[in-house]
Nucleic acid binder design. Structure first.
Lengths: 209, 209, 209, 209
DNA sequence: AATGAATGAGAATTCATTCAT
DNA sequence: TATGAATGAATTCTCATTCAT
């Protein structure tokens, strides 16, 4: 057969690869399995990706892009900080539930030793800056407590979101969540986490300032 | 007869194994590498551990035991909740700095899919119950806000601690932390995190209640 | 794509495998050795056979098929029982001389403990039924003595054939044969064995009945 | 401990080894298992036997000695050839039933490629000569047919006995026997085999000559 | 350009044999 | 002298990567 891979086929490969990596991790994931599920030959994968690791990285980039998009969309047009927080939290959960493999990939990548800096840079920069700026602005308007360091506050908040991702996307953390509260509803968790964050940031309604 | 491995040699194997598993995860970790670094033959590892998985689990048990001890010791004799939090936070950081491989191994284990429930149970149960009870009691005494769900509050708090572990024990998260604040001092981070938690839990000094 | 193994190459693998299994038995036979002698890589053997045991079984099937064919051809068109016996005896010897590895493999398999029943079923059923029916019919026609149990008679006869296989295919039994008669010619042996069987079965010419 | 191995301990080792080799064959048999079952250390086995193969050979010698003894005893004092045959046949069956491991070892040894001549010499010489002489004498007295070659006749007879050993001592041949006659009794088999041999040798009662 | 069979390095595991005690 | 723990070579099997077609 001599037809070039369509964009859609490339997307398919990436999605199947994310699933395979999510299921089995970088090591145990099998290129041949990804090829089979994608309906292409092994060779074609090596045409587009130098080796397994590079495919893994592309999956990562792909995953992060999707995740970022979802998260950004979540807060767009949201007026209040707390409203944005809740939207982010809900987006986290929804995304993790629907795209567990992406979360598992995300978790896997954070275990990388080599190239950690590079990866972190690519993946976390935007979020870090966005959240920090968000808090800075809120602080300037008196919406959050004055003694909060915006950068660290942003990191702590993002830490909570990351763990939320894992809790809804990785088997281990799901089990762990059950140990804390076997029957918690998603709504109750969101409510509690919003309260938690609200207190942590010392959020006051704007009108209250 | 040939001298049995001394306790110290056995400890060495476990330490090298933790390092190897931390570096490479269960899959990629190589028994032969662990043997080589431990200065013993491959065979002796199979004398002491049935297979790679069992060695992994022993490493896990070992790591958790050490971590638990440190964390428990940190809060013992601490009167106030906030004091305990700060101690825990400082213990987290100290431990992660000193025992990065243990943290990496912990991070690796949370990526396991098979046996996730089993592992979570073993590793997280005690912490989950301890923190939950701590918050319950504090709440009963009016030390934390009344609308906090102790179980979820405990989980969020532990989530922050876990991310702290990673931030000081795993390269990726270290780099990520630098993105938020390249020059933050440990003391400042602790101060900010204590404030963050204080607000999140709605902590009032006991005398204030 | 890389050229698939030709049929001839696949046959080579099977032949080399039969030799290796014949030489060393299932346990000691080394896949790597079979690969080396076949001029293929180890991997290709695992492409065609799930594991060593499956290769072993295929060798078995192959050997039995060849042997059966030879034996069946030997008796086809033979009118008298004694004529058939002589043909079988000669076929045994010829086959064993030409295909010693198959005989050695057969000998090896009879040492298997696990799956003995399964193997025996596959290998011996046809022969058992054929010989038994042959004797039954001959008995009905008064060609063999009336007090012979056809099934047991068939087994004793086949026992003699099996030992003949071994005597011409396995070093040990060859040496053993020399102990009985260092200089025996094949023709003399056949003549004697035919006489032996003739007496054992109480064969009378049909015209004598 | 500094006590020398008693004769009884040496016998124990040999017996346990025969069992282990009978069970698992030369390859899979484990020296450590033999040591454990014999209640001695691994080292002591290597004190008495250079290596596994030598132990195997000693087991063989031991097995053959026992077998020979039993067979010789069986025929001693027996007057008629046919009586001796029946005694031998019964002894075969009884021994194989009681000492299957010895038979399995015997079967294993006949698979040896290297040293086949040596082994055969040691193991089969006496039997070969005994049976041949037996037939020669019987022939001289007109007890067996005149056109029988005593050496070949002896071999065919011994072939039948060997297969009998296997049929009662090795799983594969047991199963094979069931294919021929699933419900045969030992007595019936003996009766049929005696008849078979009687015919084969052309035995006449002495008084009939 | 795509295919997918072949390659072969690499990893887990076993166990005969050694030898320090 | 007996012990049995340690050794490490050897074997099976997998799968990322190559490359002839």
């Amino acid at each position: 057969m001599l037809k070039k891979l369509t964009q859609s086929q490339q997307d398919t490969i990436l999605e199947r690869a994310v699933e395979e990596f999510g299921r089995n991790g970088l090591e145990r994931a099998a290129i041949s399995e990804i090829a089979r599920r994608s309906g292409v030959s092994v060779g074609v994968i090596y045409k587009y990706y130098k080796n397994k690791e590079e495919l893994f990285e592309q999956c990562l980039t792909h995953s992060i892009a999707i995740l970022s998009e979802v998260m950004e969309e979540a807060v767009s047009g949201e007026e209040t900080l707390l409203g944005a927080c809740e939207k982010l939290i809900r987006a986290c959960i929804a995304f993790s539930k629907d795209h567990a493999p992406y979360i598992q990939m995300y978790h896997a990548i954070t275990h990388t030793d080599t190239r950690a800096g590079e990866y972190a840079q690519v993946i976390e920069s935007v979020t870090a800056q966005t959240y920090t700026k968000l808090l800075s602005m809120a602080q300037a308007e008196g919406e959050v407590r004055a003694d909060l360091d915006p950068a660290l506050g942003a990191m702590f908040f993002d830490n909570l979101l990351m763990m939320l991702h894992f809790s809804y996307g990785c088997a281990y953390y799901e089990e762990r969540m059950k140990l804390y509260d076997p029957a918690v509803t998603e709504d109750e968790l969101v409510r509690q986490l919003v309260l938690f964050v609200k207190g942590a940031l010392g959020v006051r309604g704007k009108e209250a300032s």
